[in-house]
Design a protein around this nucleic acid. Sequence first.
DNA 1: TTCTTAATCGAAAACGTTTTCGAAAGTAAC
DNA 2: GTTACTTTCGAAAACGTTTTCGATTAAGAA
Lengths: 345, 345
Amino acid sequence: MKIATLKDIAEQLNISVTTVSKALKDYPDVSKKTKLQVKELAKTLNYKPNAFAVNLRKRESKTIGLIIPVIVHHFFSNVIKGIISQAEKKGYLVITLQSDESYELEKKQVELLLSQRVDGIIISLANGTAKYDHLNEIIAQGKPLVMFDKIAKIVKCSKIIIDDRKAAYTATQHLIDIGCKRIAHFRGALLPQNSIDRFLGYKKALLDNNIPYDPSLVYICECGDMSFEEGKKNAEQLLTDHDDVDGIFINTDLVAIGAMTAFQEMGVKIPDDISIVGFSNWFMSSVISPSLTTINQPGVEMGKMAFKQLLKEIKALKKGKTFEPKTVVLKTDLIVRASTKNTIS
Amino acid sequence: MKIATLKDIAEQLNISVTTVSKALKDYPDVSKKTKLQVKELAKTLNYKPNAFAVNLRKRESKTIGLIIPVIVHHFFSNVIKGIISQAEKKGYLVITLQSDESYELEKKQVELLLSQRVDGIIISLANGTAKYDHLNEIIAQGKPLVMFDKIAKIVKCSKIIIDDRKAAYTATQHLIDIGCKRIAHFRGALLPQNSIDRFLGYKKALLDNNIPYDPSLVYICECGDMSFEEGKKNAEQLLTDHDDVDGIFINTDLVAIGAMTAFQEMGVKIPDDISIVGFSNWFMSSVISPSLTTINQPGVEMGKMAFKQLLKEIKALKKGKTFEPKTVVLKTDLIVRASTKNTIS
DNA sequence: TTCTTAATCGAAAACGTTTTCGAAAGTAAC
DNA sequence: GTTACTTTCGAAAACGTTTTCGATTAAGAA
């Protein structure tokens, strides 16, 4: 019932704890005979090294922390999957926490992970996060930090992102290419960097095509998380504000789907009356009707990359080396589906 | 840069490590003055107790393990969310692993968690799991184990489930009530208990209503995970096998959506030609067209329950008490939407 | 024989905490 | 001056590993 320790093995074999430890890790200064005996007994006693003791001694936990705004989310759960699978391959475990888009919680969770002595932290910022002391503390403690998707540019750490601006530009350009003249934008929250970047990409595409930028066509979401309801609300508002809009680029698929639902309820035809482009390529977007044109955001790959970078830094630090923060930009693709329709050719 | 320890504080204050430790936890045998000094210095040094050392000493990690078949999954990610949030509230952290529906991986992951000395394990079984040695080992080590959703009845541990049979019965009865005469069933994999139970509920509903049970109407999925493609394939097969089916009860929403997509591509009208009921109430199901009638499966609540039960058992064991495994059955609801249509009244 | 080398082992310290137990010093009572 | 408390502290052991460094023995070389 009690879990076996090195001491138990040593006593049963009448040898020292030292020798048992060395035998199990194939040190050269242990005889073949003893090694065999030790290994055999270890197996029958179902010996497993006590991780606490190993951690304490080695000053590393083989564990990393992961903080994300929401778990029930197609993109984020893909990232989680990517991180966990990659980590497991390399012998690391992942402690996951959800910040719920709250700065306060996020800060508390960083403290928690630090006192747990994780070997490194991967984080995607909450929308509410505007102060970065808690992140700088991680770095100050000499712990690797990797941010992904929702990042803070100022913080000196590695970042795994997509080119939001370029992707948004591509999305908007697609609307223009198919003949849209009045293009609205649902930009989500004001703060997060990718919200800003997507907005800038949208704006640039307009200007590059000599379409005047009209601020009244940009809808902001004051609430914490972009949601289905937000999309519905914005769509209804848009319809009362403007009757000439023929295209919308929307920050997130979920919001886009909310908007589409509202439009359909109000008798607006998609894509005939309005073309819509979303962002993220949620699985859902391929099965709704009409299917949603969107930007594919490679979640699993992002997760894997984030862990790989973190591991690189963990290893560098272990060897006493320093490292330069690196920013990896992952490729995105425009996926054209039924929610956008060419009215030109 | 270096992280402060009790010793550092002790040396700077010229007192013993013992006193520092006691001061920080407000032991009565430390003077107010020393307590104040210690706490102040601890704050300025940003002292955080070393979790490894505490764990080693206290023989508990305040960490639990969670193994699930898939992360990117509406129901499971909801459960994860429930577990993590509840655990955080109680001061516990969660290490999440994904078994990918593989018995081998699941077994390895249990070993991993045990050697990590987690305080308990929550698990939802892989479809491929038919042997339970690894689970019994957890119990043999005196660690609490809670299973949810995909459980093994034989294993003596607490279980959080829904009444799959009853839910399936309700779903099938709904199809019968609206006038369906030939009702098919996509049952998913052969092995998992809930797949079996849902099938039994389906069958019982038929028989209770004097509808003959026809095995050729039950479609099995040989593959590991139930997927969108599986639904399409089954739908196509069904259409060539039988032309008189007017209702289907499908194991999982995702498969149901796949089937609906296939039907729509083949010109079969839903719900006019065939009524469909899914299972789980994925968010997606409410926004597709037609929206999907389904059984609501309370993921977050299930996760919270699972953790609560686990914590109860952890606490009992800590006090040296024993406990009786408990099975909690959560309520489900039928959610009627547009994919089923009353052809009677 | 004596010296060198190789092979095999173990004592001990260290990682950072927690907790038990006793010591010391001060105060109060007699 | 002795006894009896109270208050405040610290030594030491323990949790289970890992690793350094010496010790011991045996074998081979001189």
